[in-house]
Nucleic acid binder design. Structure first.
Lengths: 216, 216
DNA sequence: TGTAATGTTTACCAATCGGTCAAATTATCC
DNA sequence: GGATAATTTGACCGATTGGTAAACATTACA
């Protein structure tokens, strides 16, 4: 007889690990492309290359799949911000934060779109994460930035909106990729666009945050 | 007998205008909140306060509704960029473009999310608009910016990525509103956040684009 | 005021949705 | 190799999906 699924997590089989991996990979594909409501279990099952009931053997509901996916991806997604170092030099810290975020937009666009879809549609499944861990992390880093400003290392500015602007400008290249490509045209839509973006954004932020020479 | 719907558009009745208005208003609500695939005709019908078949009397399919909505909103949405004036002073032009875009994010968040949802999910319904009218408009304004840079009025930079960065930073406050609110916390989530954002973004862009005093 | 055009509703359709079930199959371990 | 646990499948469920047909109600206009 099949053991109750709750007990399944006590010890995980080789097959379980492989299949769950397979499923979450497919789920990332589908959820990031259509959002939660717009995605169907059948789609995910097809991409994962298994039957729907088989998929539902590993994740009992669509919600459970989505949750597992969010949980797996969220920590990694916040890594660049976590790496933001209070001890470091403001200019190099901001520069490398922008770089890292742009690299993630380039290398993990599906992850970016997964969150974008979720937040865009009111974040019904990740509200707690936003108000909890995310807010705390941002609060912490905002303090760092504020300290830099107070010390005259960068211009006085609202640290929260600074962080928002780095998020939005970098993630734009993942979330709005088709629009970026459409506007740039075929000739500038190669991978070089990330280098161009990096150059521009560093110029913008470093220039825009340079401390007022008058010390104002 | 009911005349074929194709002929309906020859002359529009009072009722037609009212009801189509009602429907598109409801459709904006629903599509912007759930994306095309995630939205249902039933939802829209309920929000519009009419029966589903009645709604389908005015728009034969879900696609037709979506298309009509996009068509109606797109022109307005591009208005701020169109207002970007080559003759004007770069600093004030950029400043007022940011202001206008932020005002739209504040006053028309549903419109912003409608496009964000669409682009995020691969822009299956507006690809032509992106590659056509949008690209042409951006190309034109990019030339203006390039000329400013050449004349030393602003720093030399990639005009396309500049435009992208203004889009992304401003629309962020509409598209990622829940995240912004969650991170700012209750105390800073009032309407004042748009003023704070405006102040920061103007500081960032004006500072970041200020021409190099060495003339480099 | 009559009537033709327009608008609305009820009842319905096939397809798809998320999910269940029991039977069949495969892997594991003694 | 056999028992037992783990995995997979096909058949199926009720609810919801986008959309239709036709009867019914209302409006506009001569």
């Amino acid at each position: 007889m099949t053991i109750p699924r709750a007990a399944k997590t006590l010890r995980r089989t080789r097959i379980q690990e492989e299949k769950e991996e397979q499923i979450l990979e497919a789920a990332l594909d589908v959820f990031s492309a259509s959002g939660f409501r717009g995605s169907t279990i059948d789609q995910i099952a097809e991409v994962a290359g298994m039957s729907k009931p088989n998929l539902l053997y590993y994740f009992r509901t669509k919600e459970a799949m989505h949750r597992a996916l969010i949980d797996r991806v969220l920590y990694t997604w916040l890594e660049p911000l976590r790496a933001f170092d209070a001890e470091g030099n403001p200019e190099t810290e901001i520069r490398s934060y922008i770089r890292r975020k742009l690299e993630m937009a380039r290398d993990f666009p599906r992850e970016s779109r997964l969150f974008a879809n979720e937040v865009l549609q009111g974040a019904p499944h990740i509200e707690d994460e936003l108000k909890g861990p995310l807010k705390e992390l941002v609060d912490e880093k905002a303090e760092v930035i504020r300290a830099w400003a107070k010390a005259g290392k960068i211009v006085k500015c609202d640290p929260y909106h600074l962080i928002f602007s780095i998020w939005s400008t970098t993630q734009h290249y993942a979330d709005f990729d088709v629009q970026v490509r459409a506007v740039l045209g075929q000739e500038h839509s190669g991978e070089g666009r990330f280098e161009d973006a990096a150059r521009f954004l560093e110029q913008l932020f470093i220039g825009g945050l340079r401390p007022d020479p008058l010390g104002g």
